[in-house]
């Protein structure tokens, strides 16, 4: 028996938005520690890793580990039937071929349930290596979304260069060039509005704007986002999900032939 009840159901709706542009289907791996999802996008240059800890749920029960293959388009349709205020419960029997989503209104006067067929996904389990990054940059998530959107107009790819002084985002294309420089915040009233840079060595890498824009679909999950970069390894874009977990996106830098 698996059962996970989330008082703040809107978080699951937001998680869905953060996943569905990159992934058509994915396995939700449930254990007594919580729910994990890890999948490469179709083109195999980005990876999405979601972690929702058991303690973050109002009620969580997982008698035995299970991996639920879900079509994310179908799951998204179902979650659209939940109101933002609803409490959402995900339920499945052991070895079941369906999963049930239950939506309760806050005053319990409306309860809906939707059963969805599970899929058999033949998925590879990838490990994520512990990595020391040369630069980590924390900035407001809305600022990052704005930068990705603005620079996408100039070209298909964007250079992110990080030095002690700050971080520069640049894109070049037919119409010209765009550069956005963010300095490290001197002092801030609210931590989530800060730009904070930790740097071992300067790094400059090029990334496809299309993927960065897809990652920013997670913006509503967190006020700030963290970018981690090192030469020759994938970029990590991390959004924390309140007290419950995180979604991390990995993206290979563009490599010149």
């Amino acid at each position: 028996m698996f059962e996970a009840r989330l008082l703040q159901g809107s978080l699951l709706k937001k998680v869905m938005e953060a996943l569905k542009e990159l992934l058509n289907e994915a396995a939700w791996d449930c254990s007594d520690a919580g729910i994990q999802l890890q999948a490469m996008d179709n083109s195999h240059v980005s990876l999405v890793s979601l972690n929702l800890r058991a303690e973050g749920f109002d009620k969580y029960r997982c008698d035995r580990n299970l991996s639920m293959g879900m079509n994310l388009g179908s799951m998204s349709k179902i979650l659209k039937c939940a109101s933002n205020e609803d409490i959402i419960t995900i339920k499945a029997q052991d070895n079941a071929d369906t999963v049930t989503f239950v939506f309760e209104s806050p005053d319990q006067d409306k309860v809906s349930d939707y059963e969805m067929k599970l899929m058999n996904l033949d998925q590879e389990h990838l490990g994520i290596p512990e990595t020391d990054y040369a630069c980590t940059i924390r900035l407001p998530s809305s600022e990052f979304a704005r930068i990705c959107r603005d620079l996408s107009q100039f070209g298909e790819s964007m250079v992110i260069s990080c030095t002690k002084e700050g971080v520069r985002f640049s894109a070049t294309g037919d119409i010209g060039t765009g550069n956005i420089k963010l300095a490290q915040s001197a002092k801030v009233d609210k931590e989530e509005e800060a730009v904070v840079i930790e740097m071992q060595e300067p790094v400059s890498l090029t990334f496809a704007c299309r993927y960065l824009n897809s990652f920013t679909k997670a913006t509503s999950l967190s006020k700030s986002v963290q970018l981690s970069m090192s030469p020759e390894v994938p970029l990590v874009v991390e959004y924390k999900i309140e007290d419950i977990g995180h979604v991390r996106y990995y993206l290979a830098p563009k490599i010149e032939d």
């Binding site: 980005s46 020759e232 290979a252 830098p253």
Partner: peptide
């Protein structure tokens, strides 16, 4: 592509 190879190499390191 070389990007795909980098992803495979990175995630196999774990």
């Amino acid at each position: 592509s070389r990007e795909q190879m980098m992803m495979d190499r990175f995630f196999q390191m774990a």
